[in-house]
Computed example of a mutant assay.
Amino acid sequence: MDVSEVKRKARTAASKRRAEAHELLKDSAGIALAERGLPGGLGHRPGIVSGFMPYKSEITTIPLLSRLQREGWQTALPVVMAPGEPLVFRAWAPGEPLVPGLWDIPVPPETAPEVIPGVLLVPMLAFDRRGYRLGYGGGFYDRTLEKLRTLKTVAAVGVAYHAQLSDEVPVGPHDAPLDYVMTEQETFACG
Score class of each variant (00 low, 15 high):
residue 21 A to G: 02
residue 8 R to V: 08
residue 83 P to E: 15
residue 154 V to H: 00
residue 34 A to E: 09
residue 34 A to C: 08
residue 13 A to V: 13
residue 26 K to L: 06
residue 11 R to Y: 06
residue 83 P to K: 15
residue 113 P to L: 07
residue 8 R to C: 03
residue 4 S to D: 12
residue 165 L to S: 11
residue 58 E to L: 12
residue 54 P to K: 01
residue 117 P to Q: 09
residue 88 V to R: 14
residue 106 P to Y: 12
residue 8 R to I: 07
residue 76 A to T: 07
residue 108 P to I: 12
residue 85 E to C: 14
residue 128 D to Q: 13
residue 108 P to C: 15
residue 138 G to T: 11
residue 129 R to A: 12
residue 71 E to G: 06
residue 128 D to W: 13
residue 121 L to I: 05
residue 40 G to L: 10
residue 36 R to K: 14
residue 166 S to H: 15
residue 59 I to W: 06
residue 178 L to E: 05
residue 57 S to C: 14
residue 56 K to Y: 01
residue 59 I to H: 02
residue 51 G to Q: 06
residue 3 V to L: 11
residue 185 Q to D: 14
residue 95 G to R: 12
residue 188 F to H: 10
residue 87 L to Q: 04
residue 1 M to H: 11
residue 99 V to T: 13
residue 49 V to W: 02
residue 182 M to V: 04
residue 38 L to E: 09
residue 72 G to D: 10
residue 186 E to F: 10
residue 191 G to E: 15
residue 96 E to D: 14
residue 91 A to H: 12
residue 102 L to Y: 12
residue 120 L to H: 03
residue 41 G to I: 12
residue 146 E to D: 00
residue 144 T to I: 01
residue 122 V to P: 01
residue 181 V to L: 13
residue 43 G to N: 04
residue 152 K to P: 00
residue 133 R to K: 12
residue 93 A to V: 09
residue 43 G to H: 04
residue 67 R to C: 04
residue 70 R to I: 08
residue 5 E to I: 03
residue 42 L to Y: 10
residue 121 L to M: 03
residue 185 Q to S: 14
residue 21 A to I: 03
residue 2 D to W: 01
residue 96 E to C: 11
residue 77 L to N: 01
residue 25 L to N: 01
residue 78 P to Q: 07
residue 90 R to E: 10
residue 56 K to H: 04
residue 72 G to K: 06
residue 175 D to Y: 02
residue 177 P to Y: 10
residue 189 A to K: 14
residue 95 G to L: 11
residue 183 T to K: 02
residue 97 P to R: 13
residue 28 S to I: 15
residue 14 A to Y: 03
residue 172 G to F: 02
residue 135 G to M: 03
residue 156 A to S: 12
residue 52 F to M: 08
residue 188 F to P: 06
residue 91 A to G: 12
residue 67 R to P: 03
residue 51 G to S: 10
residue 14 A to I: 05
residue 124 M to R: 00
residue 38 L to Q: 10
